[in-house]
Design a binder for these strands. Structure first.
Lengths: 222, 222
DNA sequence: ATGCTTATAATTGTATGCAATACTGCTTTT
DNA sequence: AAAAGCAGTATTGCATACAATTATAAGCAT
């Protein structure tokens, strides 16, 4: 039983490419030539790859121009803000339900994540910190029990991941975000939906303020 | 200048199939065999069709089982409720922004739609009524100015369209929905975001109550 | 009859080849 | 010198052929 966790090659190509985009291996605006990518993945022909491109384009990670190929979607500032507003809206919506439905076990699980995030912070493992951070938000949304909402939320988070990551490089923001997360967790623990909602919104707003300038730098550098 | 409004065959197949699903030509649970569909569309081979299937599956309209083909996604009651909650959440989110940004011209345009809907109601043109109804909700969301939000909203609306349509067959609900829409429009006209939000939520809640029983019938009839 | 095995057919998954379109660099024209 | 025209090249779009997998049916055993 070798490691073919993905049944079809289309699925393999999709998850692999998605990973490459969200991890920043492929940068916004970069061209994604079929042949070129196909050669990078072992024994993959253009047919399943093309199917993967259509999927990722539908998710918003790629932009297709007919007869001109695919590029990693490059979001303008306004578009990043739109997607961010959308994800925050979804999280807020989920927050109320999460507080109503969350079990003690789930609170404990998220608490454990929080602890791991704290550790990553103190040991200066930026990447881990960032990943766990995202995971906590994701788990809060999942706990709300609306699978469709969670799916969309995850998809939209993926779209802005490269942009958000930029903002977390500043250590001072990093520290404050951790403090906010403690409050977020407490609101969840108290099952205080309205408060959780407010904390999440504020958390994202604060984060975006810091990120914004950095993103603007990066965009203008093109 | 001929009628090929869609550049590639993949696009053609996608819009055509999407239409067939949302219009109810293909019913939830129904099998979508590649060869069979390919023969229905003129000169279309399996390759672009398969790409269309992946797109529609990503949108949630189709469900793919590896090596076993595609079926029109069949939503359980709980899933319909989840998607509905999601769309209502998105509309509510949009409502505030819509009231802040809506122009007089746009209000007039939506007012005209409202009028056309009224006429369709009095002339008992159910299909038109339903379509215009959806269009009004769509326009309100679009007016909010968040393209990403509008895109997701439209996608999710499409998913539950066949289920919602069932509920609007009852004339008494039909009449009440029209009255609610008048209030919705007034809230927009007054640019009262909080009220619009509340009206939209209530409108959908009321509609769902009626639809629910009918959907349950239809599902159990399988 | 029912359940299991196996052979056959049907359907999906993938690779490849060809046609259509867009890009590149050069020549030509003004 | 700048713009337009024009091969030649590269890349995408599509159809087809083949491989892999699953569904179907017939035969056999219990």
């Amino acid at each position: 039983m070798s490691g073919d966790k993905h049944g079809t090659r289309t699925q393999l190509a999709t998850t692999r490419l998605r990973q490459m985009i969200t991890a920043g291996d492929l940068r916004p605006g970069q061209r994604v030539a079929e042949r070129e990518i196909a050669e990078q993945l072992p024994g993959l022909s253009r047919t399943p790859l093309r199917e993967a491109l259509k999927i990722l384009a539908t998710e918003g990670l790629l932009t297709l121009s007919p007869n001109r190929g695919a590029t990693v979607t490059m979001l303008s500032m306004a578009e990043v803000e739109d997607v961010l507003e959308l994800t925050v809206g979804l999280e807020s919506l989920a927050a109320e339900h999460a507080c109503m439905r969350v079990s003690d076990a789930e609170i404990a699980e998220i608490g454990a994540l929080q602890q791991k995030m704290r550790e990553a912070f103190h040991e200066n493992r930026l990447m881990d910190y960032f990943e766990i951070n995202q995971l906590i938000h994701q788990r809060i949304v999942e706990v709300a029990g609306n699978r469709e909402l969670a799916r969309i939320h995850a998809t939209q988070c993926a779209r802005i991941k490269p942009y958000r990551y930029a903002g977390n490089r500043r250590h001072e923001r990093w520290e404050r975000a951790l403090a906010e997360h403690e409050q977020i967790f407490m609101a969840l623990q108290d099952r205080n939906g309205a408060l959780l909602r407010e904390m999440l919104s504020a958390h994202h707003r604060n984060g975006w303020k810091v990120t914004k300038s950095l993103v603007e730098q990066e965009l203008s550098r093109t």
